[in-house]
Design a protein around this nucleic acid. Structure first.
Lengths: 352, 352
DNA sequence: TCTTAACACGAAAACGTTTTCGCAACTCTA
DNA sequence: TAGAGTTGCGAAAACGTTTTCGTGTTAAGA
């Protein structure tokens, strides 16, 4: 087992100085053709590669991006990572991942672990607990130390940073309009409690679609699920709530669900109650994942283009990192961008 | 915007030496109570944290694990990452992720990017292309340089390293036995071509179950799908192949599918042909993911416990990393472990 | 033959730590 | 009060790079 070879060792073997080796490898004109070839041949033989850590220390940048997300076992988030990794790699960056598990503390700890030199900047989506507590000091501190952040999906306006979001309101509106256009008269929404920002926004889109079409929203058609019911053991409870919704509103002929799980659950319950999809009940959901594509019937969904979000976020971050390098004037007021990624409606079997 | 503070700056401000500051912060007894308090107070005020990169360089270890997987938008892999991240974090390590996209070249490049000092060891699952080409030089080289590797799921025996696998053969056997016990007389398997190792092994399990029960396997009941059909645009072709299977074997009453997608596709096609699940056709699939849980009918599956695999892999790797530190005798022959994670059968609605 | 320029290379600093060693300035002890 | 021991701190090396600057040797020009 031979440890990785260093400049120093090469220098010693070849009886030249470290500087000479370094220059020879970088094809400096200072070095004679002779020595250059000799050094390069030796380096190749021993498969020399510069040590990344030493470079990071010297250059004061790591060429690494830190990602902090609530969880990774989630189609949307893994799509985003795919996008980030794609452009990061193309632009010569690595990607280091921390999971907050929706916990404020883990989010803070993870950020601290990484902010001490390990990375050049963050791409993150805020944990639910953080959103509830509205404690954002770890973000502002990081930014104050000169480390840029790009937030995606779950963002919060008071933090000065680039953001990439989907237009939840508009996407939901289109979904509901699809149901209206397809002749649904009693459209219910299955959403989350309002502190989950996307739940709130998607509900808002639902309501706006109604307004635009002069339909009166009925509060009995708005079901807001306590978010913990997403966890598997609470599945029964989720089904029960949805069943109640149907039973107390027999005339429901359209469902807009803010995520796939709610949608498939609604379909399951509806079928049990004897409804046919899409003849008696049409369903549209948000977030296009594997359930939408492969469950039966396949779901008409609002696609969020997670990968595109990731790509955009990575580009924003890297652009900023590389712009900083040339910014001699540190006092220019930073101006941040909020990019909205368009959603689009993918029609499948759950609507007519 | 204040950049992160360093020992040198603290030393200068307090008019002591760098060494004194370092020692004071680490509560060295060499330092007087007085100076210690002074330094610690100052450090706290300016929120000093040691620079990780500098530490990595000094200690010749990064406390970072590199993960290389084929893709991340895949329930199994993201579960594994969750497990890795969990124990890594608990044991003070970070996790850096590279995606090979099933490509040999990207796998090699990704490993090279990380092997130059960025990480202490790898956890990886081999890309399909690599398995096909059977070119494993990048693994052996990495290992020869003293960087440990732990492989999971898609492993290859000739590489000397720790491995974490599921017992594909045994798991499949149990799945098929379940179908047999439930009275199925004509059980088909939908698998992948043999170069995908898990496809091969799971097929083997299917055959072994038959042998044990003195059933003759019929080649017409073994469908091996070209793996590219997993990609969404080939879905039609997948359905078509499965449909042919049913049409030319009218008596099929049990299906063992090596992944969820094949299972739901089989169910979809079967229904189209008028079969009822589980009355006329029972289905068991491998890999317990979101489709199994939430599609209708929910699938009886062989659970691989991805998170547990990740946890085990991370523990194996970190154990080895930390054992190395005390190993003065470098010549001890390394002995590697292969851990088999038990699968278990989760019964749901797709079987009686 | 002397000056100048080109050439080829080495020394050293810097990035931010930790740690070993050395050394002053005390405080005891006899 | 001399010698020994303790206390508190600083200098310097090391981790592996890159880069600036200096310098000795040779070749060319006058």
């Amino acid at each position: 087992m031979k440890r990785k070879i260093t400049l120093k060792q090469i220098a010693k073997e070849l009886d030249v100085s470290i500087s000479t080796v370094s220059k020879a490898l970088r094809n400096s004109i200072e070095i004679s053709e002779d020595t250059r070839q000799k050094v390069q041949a030796f380096a190749k033989l021993y498969n020399y590669r510069p040590n990344n850590i030493a470079l990071s220390l010297k250059n004061r940048k790591t060429k690494t991006i830190g990602i902090i997300i609530p969880e990774i076992v989630h189609h949307f988030f893994s799509e985003v990572i795919t996008g980030i990794e794609l452009v990061a790699n193309n632009r010569g960056y690595n990607v280091i991942v921390g999971l907050s598990n929706e916990s404020f503390d883990k989010e803070v700890i993870n950020m601290q672990m990484l902010a001490n030199g390990s990375i050049d900047g963050f791409i993150l989506s805020i944990a639910k607990e953080t959103l509830q507590q509205q404690d954002y000091h770890h973000f502002t501190e990081t930014i104050n130390q000169g480390m840029p952040i790009v937030m995606f999906d779950r963002v919060v306006n008071e933090i000065p940073c680039d953001k990439v979001i989907v237009d939840d309101v508009e996407g939901s509106k289109q979904a509901v309009e699809k149901l209206i256009a397809n002749g649904c008269k009693n459209i219910a929404i299955i959403s989350t409690k309002d502190y989950v920002s996307v739940g709130k926004l998607r509900t808002q889109g639902y309501l706006e679609a109604f307004e635009d079409h002069k339909i009166n929203a009925k509060s009995s058609l708005i079901l807001k699920i306590e978010d913990k019911l997403m966890f598997d053991d609470h599945l029964d409870k989720l089904e029960h709530e949805v069943e109640q919704l149907f039973k107390s509103n027999k005339s429901i002929d359209g469902i807009f669900a803010v995520n796939e799980l709610y949608a498939v659950t609604a379909i399951k319950v509806a079928r049990k109650l004897g409804l046919k999809i899409p003849e008696n009940l049409q369903v549209v959901s948000f977030s296009d994942g594997v359930l939408s594509k492969h469950s039966t019937p396949s779901l008409t969904t609002v696609s969020q283009h997670g990968q595109k979000i990731g790509e955009k976020a990575a580009n924003l971050l890297i652009n900023r990192l590389e712009a900083e390098e040339v910014a001699y004037d540190d006092e220019t007021e930073e101006v941040y961008e909020t990019v909205v990624i368009e959603t689009n409606l993918i029609e499948r079997e759950s609507t007519k």
